[in-house]
């Protein structure tokens, strides 16, 4: 399976256009809701709602929504949320996250195997 990796500081409206080119999209984002070091992978689908209030501030769900509305693109989309506690610009990874990182990486690595098994 071929994958492209893109690191962005912000998701923008324009990203919705890019999703046209992909079958599967995995968004990876830090989360304040999960305890540090825990992670979840949930699937995202267009849900008729977009909360985008700014051209450069979209949630993964917004991007999915816009991709479906505008570009007829509905890739299988997933959101990997990783619980973290420190978000300041000068922070490095906290200990729980540091410890969980290998497992998260392993989980992401097995992600495409799981996907193909699903099909």
């Amino acid at each position: 399976m071929h994958a492209d990796l893109e690191c962005v500081t912000q998701l923008t409206i324009e990203h919705s256009q890019k999703l046209r080119n992909y079958e599967t999209v995995l968004f990876i984002d830090a989360s304040i809701l999960l305890p540090p070091g825990e992670w979840t992978i949930e699937s995202l689908a267009p849900h008729g709602m977009c909360s985008a209030q700014a051209s450069h501030h979209c949630t993964p769900a917004d991007v999915i929504e816009l991709a479906a509305l505008l570009f007829d693109a509905s890739p299988d989309a997933y959101l990997l949320s990783i619980g973290a506690s420190k978000f300041d610009e000068r922070d490095s990874l906290g200990e729980p996250l540091q410890a969980a990182l290998p497992n998260i990486v392993a989980d992401v690595k097995s992600f495409d195997t799981r996907l193909s098994r699903k099909n």
Partner: peptide
């Protein structure tokens, strides 16, 4: 009243 609303109404 935002870009998503616009996308739904007038893609």
């Amino acid at each position: 009243r935002n870009i998503a609303g616009l996308a739904a109404k007038n893609p």
